[in-house]
């Protein structure tokens, strides 16, 4: 057990990822990729949290797998277009299956989610193991796909350039574009998303098509999931969909501030995750989610709004305090 956890020194924890120039470059790309994934997922995830659909994100990040596998089989390439289309279709199919089971039978939404994503995920895993030779994906990579490989890839120097700016390996470049597109889409449809998430009744009276917004959000979720999926695995996606948004929601109640805090949280999680992974010598994707969980725990305990400490302080105050003078006066009359 003791051999498993290396000794902790602040100095090595802070500086060891950046000491060596080669390792530093590789870590830079890992942090950047983590930041992009966490930002895109976190921003979309905020809407899922508000709509009480947090677990739909979990479901979709599992059920895009058969879409990806079939796209591989049909196109015989790792081409990203086919994969995007496959994942998009799988994501929408999941949404439809959930809706149909939920609306047509008395099975509740939570059970419908569970049935839909496990069935699709099972099909995906079976496809992968049946056609292992044709599909360049393995089962484990699906779960905690290695963000760590991005470092060596970046060092190998195959950078995708847009307007002459090196954007790193193709997966990173694609993720950067998806993240920017996410921000643009949220800015463009800010009102529609906000109103239909918080008050569907008001949305329909304003002429916003809530069904369209719902399917639009689900489609974009599939796009974000699939562009993150291959390189970072399902677990980072699920974690980053919910954790940054939930942390932000503990700290403020204003939606624009929640969005900003989500981005800040994404940066801290990915940077901290790489430090954690270097110290413990473990999977960086896992470490980033652990870091995000730690940030959540911190917010949960110390939040000035409804943190545990504040709660405890007030509850103790309310329980043991003497009745105030006004109360005594009132009751004695």
């Amino acid at each position: 057990m003791s051999e498993l956890i290396p000794p902790f020194h602040w100095h090595t924890f802070l500086f060891s990822p950046w000491n060596d120039p080669l390792i530093a470059t590789s870590n830079f790309w890992i942090v950047l990729m983590g930041f992009m994934v966490a930002t895109a997922c976190g921003l979309v995830g905020n809407y899922l949290i508000v709509r009480r659909m947090a677990l739909v994100g979990d479901a979709i990040s599992h059920s895009v797998l058969p879409g990806i596998a079939i796209a591989f089989l049909v196109s015989q390439t790792r081409g990203s277009t086919a994969m995007f289309i496959g994942a998009l279709i799988a994501g929408i199919v999941t949404t439809i299956i959930i809706e149909v089971i939920h609306k047509k039978t008395r099975v509740k939404q939570d059970a419908a989610i569970g049935i839909a994503f496990t069935s699709l995920f099972a099909i995906g895993v079976i496809l992968i193991s049946l056609f292992a030779a044709q599909i360049d994906l393995d089962q484990e990579c699906v779960l905690y796909g290695e963000i760590g490989y991005i470092g060596p890839e970046a060092l190998a120097g195959e950078h995708t350039r847009i307007f002459g700016i090196p954007l790193g390996p193709i997966t990173v470049a694609r993720m950067i574009l998806v993240t920017i597109a996410t921000c643009v889409l949220i800015a463009l449809f800010y009102k529609e998303l906000l109103v239909s998430s918080f008050d569907p009744g008001l949305a329909s009276s304003l002429g916003i098509n809530a069904t369209m917004v719902h399917y639009g959000l689900m489609s974009w979720l599939s796009v974000v999931v699939v562009s993150s999926f291959e390189s970072v695995g399902a677990i980072l996606v699920i974690g980053m969909l919910i954790l940054p948004g939930a942390t932000a929601a503990l700290l403020t109640a204003r939606f624009p501030r929640i969005l900003l805090l989500t981005v800040l949280n994404a940066a801290l999680s990915s940077l901290g995750g790489v430090h954690l992974a270097t110290w413990l010598n473990c999977s960086p994707a896992g470490a980033m989610v652990v870091m995000a969980s730690l940030l959540f725990s911190a917010a949960w305990i110390f939040s000035p709004h409804d943190g545990l400490i504040r709660r405890w302080y007030y509850m103790r105050g309310a329980g043991t305090s003497e009745p105030s003078e006004a109360t005594v006066e009132l009751t004695s009359k």
Partner: peptide
């Protein structure tokens, strides 16, 4: 103030990530 689905999702991801690490 977080709802049940969010809490479930967070614990799922957080614990699983610790396990993966």
């Amino acid at each position: 103030r977080l709802k049940e689905d969010t809490a479930l999702g967070m614990v799922l991801a957080g614990f699983f990530a610790v396990g993966i690490c």
